[in-house]
Nucleic acid binder design. Structure first.
Length: 592
RNA sequence: GUACCCGUAGCUCAGCGGAUAGAGCACCGGUCUUCGGAACCGGGUGCCGGGGGUUCAAAUCCCUCCGGGUACACCA
């Protein structure tokens, strides 16, 4: 049990003894560190209901608390805050337990659930760009977090690979290379042999074609009609189109996989819209038969509006009037698949906040039709948009979209030149320097993103991403690396860590108090689905360590018991930093 | 038009019911024979967009106004 929950248990009993609800005994970290370590505000809240004066109630509560091994002193302050100072022994004992724990004292959740993290993956044909960064790093972080706290977690890229964009690309390619066999309706594989095994296009081609055809469809309704027809025919299984789709998908996956690997983002499954294709027709007919869906203007829709809605909610579209499917259809069918096959308890959709209305419609339809039973969680984890300095979506100087791969190169380059300037990694082998530059660049990039609250909009600023001072990823890595350096030197000197004893220096106490909060911090990050909670705390751990590092010189310490304790303390600190950074998707070099 | 999100220090942003609202950057000064200076210490700044309300307590919850952004069946 965490230190904070132990204190809460004590005060819950004390409040109950006063005849008020035990929940008033909740203990939280003190807002005034100079006054106390923890505080309990329950007397303020409980006083009115109990018809008592808050200070008097607080006095009475304190009077029943007798925990000399946990609590050093209790004081009532202001209108009725209970300020709690814990004993040095409790602190050192708790840090000692963390040191000896595989999970750093963080208990696994009591009920493990199956959690699907849907990173809102890219459309087929798109090379990854800055816009994909947030979904990737936030989703990856949430996946790691949920997994660490004990849930069965499946990260799904959920590619957009079965909708209109494919029909558009088919049309565009046909106009460019009409002679390809895929477009010949007469082509028969059993007579003419199989379609070519080599793709007629690569990912660069597709990336170039996509905006072109999108614009053409806007400009010319006839082209848009052709794209819709191609989409329909693909979904109906026209052999040439399916063969072409397979090429598109293969080259897209190959290109995107390398970008995600460069980001250290790893999906458990590469499902997509097409994965549930076989469920679409049966699902639509079933919903039509049950009356939960109906025909309207030639399309099939599910009404999701409720009489007491504050706003107008358009219906969810299951088929276009030509019978083709949309991403609403595949999203609904995907929920069905995740419930039936993956036995999902919770689905987290890490997708741009601008798609909020769509998810509200899909979730409502899923509830209404029973596709998602009430106990299954459906959550849109929206995040803000990535803008340039002018408030519009970020563009390169040339006006193009900045590729994710190019962005990674930029931050790596920044880290590399920083290494050169600081001439600290001089003697390192070139391969190691390169690896360090990669890790440091990625840390800057990811921390720069994750320390923002995910719902706030994002102003893309390259200078901020390649900044390595202050509240940055590299600073956190640097802190951890300094610990590794101490541990190496200690090992060389034959000094080993020992029992963690009560703190004797303020900076040491501060670090210990910080470390001990880990369980609550992770719980909060889980509850809010917010990686910035972890990022914020990781930075605080690092700064507390830096203060300790300045004040307490471990290798020169003459009191061997204290030295051994300090060594153990920095070992735990390293483990905590390692965990936190891993949850953010950031690696720590051995040296940098 | 309707709904949602956002407005906090010069800049970028945390905090989202509790006591004196915090960080980083930038700016000024200091530390420096010691475990790695990508560091540490000190300096100051805020009508928390305005106005009402709820509460013992509001940056935080509710209402309203102003300013910015976004989304609103046959795109994803």
């Amino acid at each position: 049990m965490s230190l904070q929950s132990r204190l809460t248990a004590v005060f819950a009993r004390a409040f109950a003894a006063q005849g008020v609800d035990a929940s008033f005994g909740e203990v939280v970290v003190s807002q005034r560190p100079e006054l106390a370590d923890y505080q309990c505000n329950g007397a303020l809240a409980a006083a009115k209901g109990a018809g008592r004066n808050p200070r008097e109630l607080a006095e009475a509560v304190i009077g029943t608390v007798d925990e000399p091994t946990l609590i050093e002193s209790l004081e009532i302050a202001g209108p009725g805050f209970i300020n709690i100072v814990i004993t040095p022994d409790l602190l050192s004992e708790t840090v000692g337990e963390m040191a000896g724990s595989q999970r750093l004292g963080v208990e696994a959740v009591e009920h493990a659930e199956t959690v699907i993290v849907d990173y809102g993956g890219p459309n087929l044909s798109k090379a990854l760009h800055v816009g994909h960064l947030r979904a990737a790093v936030i989703g990856e972080s949430l996946k790691r977090l949920f997994r660490f706290v004990g849930h069965t977690t499946i990260g799904d890229i959920h590619m957009g690979d079965w909708g209109m964009p494919i029909g558009q690309l088919i049309v565009e390619l046909e106009d460019r290379q009409p002679g390809l066999p895929y477009f010949d309706p007469e082509y028969d594989e059993s007579v003419d042999g199989p379609y070519p095994s080599d793709s007629p296009v690569d990912l660069d081609d597709l990336s170039e074609m996509y905006p072109v055809i999108t614009q053409r469809c806007v400009d010319d309704p006839a082209v848009a009609d052709r794209a819709r027809l191609a989409t329909l025919e693909l979904q109906n299984g026209r052999a040439g189109y399916v063969a072409l789709w397979r090429h598109f998908r293969n080259v897209s996956v190959a290109g995107q996989r390398s970008d995600f690997e460069a980001l250290d983002v790893e999906f458990d499954v590469w499902y997509g819209e097409s994965t549930v294709h076989d469920r679409l027709a049966p699902m639509v007919s079933r919903l039509l038969a049950s009356g939960e869906a109906r025909e309207s203007e030639g399309a099939v829709i599910v009404d999701v509006a409720e009489p007491d809605d504050a706003k107008e909610l358009p219906p969810l579209l299951l088929t276009r009037s030509d019978g083709s499917y949309l991403y609403s259809t595949t999203d609904l069918a995907t929920i069905e698949m995740r419930v039936e096959e993956l036995e999902a308890d919770v689905m987290l959709y890490v997708v741009d906040a601008r798609q909020g209305l769509h998810f509200e419609q899909v979730f409502r339809a899923a509830r209404k039709t029973g596709i998602a039973p009430p106990e299954v969680g459906l959550e849109h984890i929206g995040f803000g948009t990535v803008n340039g300095p002018d408030g519009t979506p970020f563009k390169t100087r040339e006006g193009g979209v900045l590729r994710l791969g190019d962005l990674i190169d930029l931050v790596t380059e920044g880290a590399r030149s920083k290494l050169d300037e600081a001439n600290i990694a001089e003697g390192y082998p070139p391969e190691e320097r390169e690896e360090i530059a990669r890790q440091v660049g990625l840390a800057a990039l990811k921390f720069g993103d994750l320390c923002n609250h995910r719902t706030s909009n994002y102003t893309f600023d390259l200078d901020r991403f390649v900044a390595f001072e202050g509240k940055t990823g590299p600073y956190l890595q640097y802190s951890a690396v300094r610990i590794k350096s101490i541990l190496r030197r200690a090992a060389e000197a034959g000094i080993s860590s020992g029992v963690i004893i009560p703190p004797s220096v303020e900076a040491e106490r501060g670090l210990m108090l910080r470390l001990v909060r880990l369980p609550e911090v992770l719980a909060r990050a889980v509850n809010l689905r917010a990686p910035n909670v972890i990022a914020e705390y990781a930075y605080e751990v690092a700064t507390d360590f830096s203060r300790f590092y300045e004040k307490c010189h471990i290798l020169n310490e003459t009191d061997t018991q204290r030295q051994a304790s300090w060594l153990a303390l920095v070992e735990v600190t390293l483990k905590v930093l390692d965990l936190l950074l891993d949850l953010l998707g950031i690696e720590i070099p051995d040296r940098m």
